[in-house]
Design a protein around this nucleic acid. Structure first.
Lengths: 162, 162
DNA sequence: GCATATAGGACCTAAACAGTCCTGTATGTA
DNA sequence: TACATACAGGACTGTTTAGGTCCTATATGC
């Protein structure tokens, strides 16, 4: 559904929470503060750690901390930490340089790169610091009107033709 | 994985193919030309039709045609035809005006609207007409270097700290 | 040495996806 | 009018993936 997984949702919630309150956090504390089940939160944190988004400290008084200031962590880094490289389609995944089997005949799928790039850049603009602020009403309005415009565009010219 | 489904991939391939060669197309022909299994292609076309992206004509000599010129069909309309509204997370889905259960306590999740808007706008920029052109080398280079920059940014400052 | 806390991976359940097939209905043509 | 063609809608199924839990190993501070 062009939808991120719940795990990624959790990851962003946790990361944003860490951004709002610096310092080392135990996984258990983060779980409680974000109302995410502890084993799940722990799993997410491990993945964030492996991706280098957060640093970890083992042992007593250990915990997790953001690897960099929130302004320097793009939301796409959090997403990629959980979901792997943002590749909208398989053949748009440039980690392998191999072309998909239809590449020669289709030429269309290659254009997914375009979409991929657009999405990637859109996400790169948003940092954890941005996410710490409460939502702005103007933003919601913007989004809603943009969607309504689309609906009008779709239903208007085609109408109930068929 | 922030990844569209195969069905949506098919939908874009088919729609782009239709954009490149105007006129009514039988589902069977489209299936053969795009190398997509016929029942699957047919299913996709029905969904595109219901969403108003293509028009349909029943009976002998019937078929499908784009509802509007390719320049006026945004890639997000094709995606939404198959996957429903582009809502990156559940609580970012504004079709229901209800706030998610954590809304009051979290305030973070509401910021998904931001991401949603960014992705939506990114996709709206790209039309079917854009997809008809063969990929540009510059674009690939851009994408690749942008990703590599990210990797460097992630691995460099955190390094092998832990 | 013990309590605390992360690392890593195995494992299970439920839901979503991908794909096929069947029946019904509309339309052009002989 | 009959028939062939082609879309409409939905049922159905096998496979894959996500979501979530739990267990064991390892590192660290007191």
């Amino acid at each position: 559904m062009l939808r991120i997984s719940k795990m990624t949702d959790y990851a962003v919630v946790i990361a944003t929470h860490m951004a709002a309150t610096r310092g080392p956090h135990a996984a258990r504390d983060l779980a409680q503060e974000t109302q995410i089940p502890e084993p799940t939160a722990s799993k997410v944190l491990k993945q964030l750690s492996r991706a280098g988004v957060v640093t970890s400290q083992r042992g007593a008084k250990g915990g997790y901390a953001l690897a960099r200031p929130p302004q320097q962590i793009g939301i796409h880094q959090v997403i990629e930490a959980i979901e792997g490289p943002i590749a909208v389609t398989e053949c748009a995944d440039e980690t392998t340089d191999s072309l998909c089997e239809y590449e020669t005949s289709c030429g269309v799928r290659a254009n997914w790169q375009r979409i991929n790039l657009a999405v990637h850049q859109a996400l790169a603009q948003i940092t954890l610091a941005d996410m710490s602020f409460p939502i702005q009403d103007t933003l919601v309005t913007l989004l809603r009107s943009s969607k309504e415009a689309d609906r009008a565009r779709v239903t208007e010219p085609s109408g109930e033709v068929h």
